[in-house]
């Protein structure tokens, strides 16, 4: 019994120390009810000031959890934004937070909700991966490691 407890404690602490997605979404040992998956950051030309990050937030818990903030060392500011299509024009608006209701998932995707990376710093353009630190309403912060890629249709 003690053995099992120690083992799971060890797994949990190892996983939470790991950067990136924390653990496999399917892992039953994962005590975290928030899973971050299927993400990327858009590759942009070196003259660009901004880029965007996308991923899916899955909340398998019983309480709604809200993404409050995102941070990266490779951008001057990181904000939560949304695109809206109004009167035939595309409009971008900042949103204060992104709520993920219990048992649901929210997709951050092109033309919708996204993480805006503003004022990209030089190392961004040669980076293959971007680490974002995300702060949630449950008081926990989680990191997500996203590949930088060019989109293909």
């Amino acid at each position: 019994m003690i053995h099992r407890f120690l083992l799971s404690a060890l797994i949990v602490s190892t996983l939470s120390a790991l950067p990136g997605f924390g653990s496999e979404p399917s892992s039953p040992k994962n005590s975290d009810t928030i899973t971050l998956k299927e993400g990327y950051v858009r590759a942009v030309p070196a003259s660009s000031e901004n880029s965007a990050a996308y991923f899916t937030i899955l909340n398998s818990g019983k309480k709604s959890v809200t993404l409050l903030k995102a941070d990266s060392s490779l951008a001057r500011a990181v904000e939560l934004h949304e695109h809206r299509h109004e009167n035939g024009m595309m409009k971008m608006v900042q949103v204060p937070s992104i709520e993920v209701p219990a048992g649901e998932s929210v997709e951050l995707e092109p033309m919708g909700l996204h993480i805006m990376m503003i004022g990209l710093k030089k190392p961004f353009f040669s980076a293959k991966e971007i680490v974002l630190k995300l702060s949630f309403s449950d008081g926990k912060s989680r990191t997500v490691r996203l590949p930088v890629k060019k989109e293909e249709e």
Binding site: A52, H81, M92, P110, M111, M116, E151
Partner: peptide
């Protein structure tokens, strides 16, 4: 060019 989302998506398409 500062358009972070719509323009890249349209141009990629």
């Amino acid at each position: 060019t500062r358009c972070p989302d719509v323009c890249p998506v349209s141009l990629s398409r």
